[in-house]
Every structure is written in structure tokens, then in C-alpha cells.
Amino acid sequence: MAEEAHVLVLDIFNRFDLEIKAGRSGIKNKITVSDIKRPGIELAGFWEHFYPERINLIGTTELSFLRGLDENVFIERIDEYVSYDPVCIIVARGEEIPKYLLKRAEDKGIPILSTKITTTRFSSMLLNYLEEKLAPLTVIHGVLVDIYGIGVLIKGESGIGKSETAIELVKRGHRLVADDIIEIKKIGELRLSGSAPENARYFLEMRGIGIINVKTLFGAGAVKHDSPINLAVRLEKWVEGYDYERLGLDDHKTEIMGLEIDEIVIPVKPGRNLALVLEVAAMNYRMKTMGYNAAVDFTENIMKK
């Protein structure tokens, strides 16, 4: 069974160059959720929906509230706070941390880190980092290529020509992301990102030749570590008499990890320049995202005539 995705408090410490104030023994605590908690209402005494597995972010507001409490109430709230064993506490703006909180965190092994960045800004940075690192992941077969900044996922049955098309695209100045095995992460609720497994990164299989290293052969500019997945292209053998899309008025979608992305079907037959077709598909997709649809424009021109 695969281990649950996680990052360590140590990873956060290193990534954002934080200062550790207490609880160094908990620096290898595992963080498994991307949500962040600002424990304002909890410090006011309401603990019903407190989730200690979330990183706790404390700013000026929370500390001002704590400093205004009666000493006995303050001690009671801190004791209850640390009793839940929050995975990590980060204090923003370089604020001075109450000594009693530092002492109790040290006793319990709860890491308290400090940053000089403002609370809102750091919250945004941390959330983006955690969503990327802890994003749900799936593995699919295909080829992922960056064409004019558009992440194009090439699908199709074995031997249809996916890898050969990718190499031709690389020769035309585009970048290979992954061949054969693609690890796809769902980042947030609206974005898919694809990359190659670390042990297969930049390698590509060509039948009759074998495994090649695209980075070694074509240079660092021919590869890319990861890419958003914007468009899916399914290659399939040309069937004579089949009514393939001619105008492009109908939008087709494919679903990956609960998200729908645009998909087009490209029929394959000898002599067809697939790399050129995919370049045009990527450029046409970009024009659609900018609000221009050539098929609709063409149809409207015909209707006007």
C-alpha cells in the first residue's frame, strides 16, 4: 500500500527559511493536509472544530487577543491549546511569542516557527506550496508535451506514433515533459499538472531504436520538468468513410481526476504530419481561450452571405 502523501515540518522550515523558536524535537512531524488553521476562535475558548493536523498560523490579531487576557485565563487557554498537539505553529510578522507558549510547546515537542512575512502573504505562499506537494496523484499512459506553452496530452493505442510525434515536436522547438508514464496531480480544484516519474524523466522509447535521453540528445531546452494539462489529443487509426470533425463546432471533453479538459481526435494515416497538426491544435486552443473561435467565425460569415 502506497504511503500517504506528506511533507515534514522540516521541509516547511527549509523551504521558507524560517526560524525555530521551540519544539525542535517535533521538526519531523508529518503534515498530510493542505488546509491551514488560524486559531482565533479556539483561543477565545471554542475548540469544537479544531483540527490539530493542520498547520496553525498565528498573526498579530491572535497575539493581541492573548496579551489582553487575564493571566489565569491566558494560562488556561495555552494549556488547552497545546493539549491538542497541533502539528506545527507558525508565527508571522516576526511577532514576539509569549514565553509561556514557548515553554509549553517545548515541553510537548510542538514546533513553533517564526517568519517575518505578513500573515496574509505567508498564508498564500504556504497554501500554494502544500497544495502542490500534497495534491492527489494518479498515473496514466501517454505522452505530455509543452507546445507553445500549452500542455498537450497525447493519447492513443500502443504503436500509433505518440513517441515519434513527440520527437518531431521536440525537433521543432517544443519541450517533452513525459513519455509513456505520466504522473498527474490535481492541484486545487481547477488545475491538473503532469510530470514524469523521477527515474524515467527525460527518457523516451522509440521502437527500433530503443531508449533515448531527450535532454542529452537535444539539450536542456528540449525538456520540461512539469506542465499543466490543457488539451488532450487522442490519436487513432484513420477509418475510411468515417465522418471525422470538419468544422470544430462541437466541443469534446475528457475527464481526468474529476476535471474535464478539452479533447480532440486526430485520425492517423501514412504521410500525415502529426507534429504540424498538433502545433495547429495547440495554437487553435490558445485562440479559443482568448475568445476567438475560427469555426464560429467561419459559420457566421457563411450565414451572412
Rank of each mutant, 00 (worst) to 15 (best):
N230G: 08
E106R: 09
K108G: 03
I12A: 01
E132W: 09
Y129D: 00
L126I: 09
E131W: 00
K99M: 11
I229L: 05
K28M: 09
K237R: 15
D180V: 04
M290V: 01
E240D: 15
W47C: 02
F13T: 06
Y244R: 10
I20K: 12
L134K: 05
S163V: 09
I90T: 07
P270Y: 05
V277D: 01
C88R: 10
A281Q: 03
I97S: 11
H141K: 11
T299H: 10
E71W: 05
A275M: 06
A200T: 13
D35R: 13
D107H: 14
K28V: 04
L8S: 15
T299I: 06
V82M: 06
D11R: 00
T299C: 01
I266P: 01
K155P: 03
E168I: 14
T289R: 13
E279A: 13
E62P: 05
P197E: 08
Y202G: 06
E236P: 02
T118R: 11
V87P: 05
D251S: 14
G26M: 09
G210Y: 03
F65V: 08
I150T: 08
G159C: 02
I211M: 12
C88P: 05
A220Y: 04
V277S: 03
A135L: 07
G208I: 02
R93N: 07
G258E: 05
S193R: 13
S25E: 15
A44P: 08
T165K: 02
E263T: 13
P39D: 02
S25K: 15
L276V: 14
V233N: 09
K103L: 03
T60R: 14
L247N: 05
E157F: 13
K28W: 04
G68A: 05
L127E: 00
F65C: 06
F74W: 04
P267I: 01
G59A: 11
P228F: 09
I160H: 00
I20R: 04
V177F: 00
I41K: 10
G291Q: 11
Y202N: 12
E106D: 15
V143G: 02
G151C: 09
F298N: 05
T61L: 10
R15S: 08
K162E: 12
A282H: 00
A295Q: 13
D85S: 15
G23Y: 07
I110Y: 06
R104I: 05
L113Y: 09
T138F: 01
I55C: 02
I31N: 03
L63R: 03
G59E: 07
V33A: 02
